[in-house]
């Protein structure tokens, strides 16, 4: 008893010391975490940041500023990252406007759009943009710089992004995983787009591909537009602009063998019914299912 009692003061000292030390380090003098740049965020944090950039771009239409902000996350491949995140957002059932915003921003960095000043990332951004963000972009490559520079310039008032004409009609050979369509979608509340073309094509590289192009009033590409497709397996939405190489107004969908689909635009259009891949014959006599092209134009 004496021996145990004799050691108790050591245990007491250890417990009290550890407790006080821990409390002091966490509550009284907590360690301040290192300040980080967006590039050092976790992938979840980077995705959140990217969504915010896309939503801010949708709000202010300032592609130069969006471009500068994206360079804070990664130097190149922003369009690919945006497209990939848009597709992930769709697959994960995130709000549609999130995927739409990402897709619309991805279309701005579409390298297939000649003459679009914001199609490349800084330093080749020619448009005048808010330097508060550009200063951050510069600072990201020199981590020791803490303060942004003082060279502020006004934010350009006119949006540059989404409705500029671009070359279309470039079919993509790669496609996303096929959505699983089902019943006929409910009727559209209003019709903002009109069907201008519905055709089929026999090209083995486009096998069972349902290709959709959406044009604005001027005939240019219309990115970020939701397309609802339904068939025997369910209904899903996909967006234009997720494949910048094929054009920012372009989207495609791989049909199931023998599948029949109805399609319409989420923004409002007539329903294009009974879409099915044509049966084509190859030079060697074999048959395959070709592709379908549907083109809508803003009214």
């Amino acid at each position: 008893m004496n021996g145990r009692g004799g050691n108790l003061y050591i245990v007491t000292a250890a417990v009290v010391g550890l407790t006080v030390g821990l409390l002091a380090s966490l509550a009284v003098w907590p360690v301040r975490p290192a300040a980080i740049s967006p590039r050092e965020l976790t992938s979840v944090g980077q995705n959140t940041y990217r969504i915010l950039i896309a939503r801010a771009f949708r709000a202010n239409g300032d592609s130069g500023r969006a471009s500068s902000r994206l360079t804070l996350l990664d130097e190149g491949g922003s369009a690919a990252a945006l497209s990939a995140q848009a597709q992930q957002a769709l697959a994960a059932g995130h709000p549609l406007d999130e995927a739409e915003a990402l897709a619309r921003l991805a279309s701005v960095f579409d390298p297939s759009r000649p003459g679009e000043p914001s199609a490349t990332l800084p330093g080749s951004v020619e448009t005048a943009t808010a330097s508060s963000t550009q200063a951050l972009a510069a600072a990201s490559s020199t981590p020791t710089v803490v303060q942004p520079t003082e060279t502020r310039t006004p934010v350009p008032a006119s949006p540059t992004a989404s409705r500029t004409p671009t070359s279309m009609r470039t079919p993509a050979t790669a496609t996303a995983d096929p959505p699983t369509p089902s019943a006929t979608p409910p009727p559209a509340s209003g019709s903002s787009f009109t069907l201008v073309e519905r055709s089929t094509e026999c090209d083995r590289s486009l096998e069972r591909l349902l290709r959709v192009e959406i044009q604005n009033r001027q005939g240019g590409a219309f990115p970020g537009q939701g397309i609802e497709i339904s068939g025997s397996e369910g209904m899903q939405v996909f967006f234009t602009g997720l494949k910048p190489r094929a054009g920012s107004g372009y989207a495609d969908f791989r049909m199931q063998p023998g599948g029949v689909y109805n399609l319409r635009l989420a923004a409002g259009s007539e329903t294009v019914a009974s879409l099915a891949a044509p049966i084509c014959r190859a030079a060697d006599g074999s048959t395959y299912e070709g592709s379908v092209l549907v083109i809508f134009k803003e009214k």
Binding site: A13, V15, V16, G17, L22, A24, S25
Partner: peptide
Amino acid sequence: LVLLFSLSAGLAFGW
């Protein structure tokens, strides 16, 4: 001595 050692250990763990 034990108190000081454990206090240091607690601080080091937290920081």
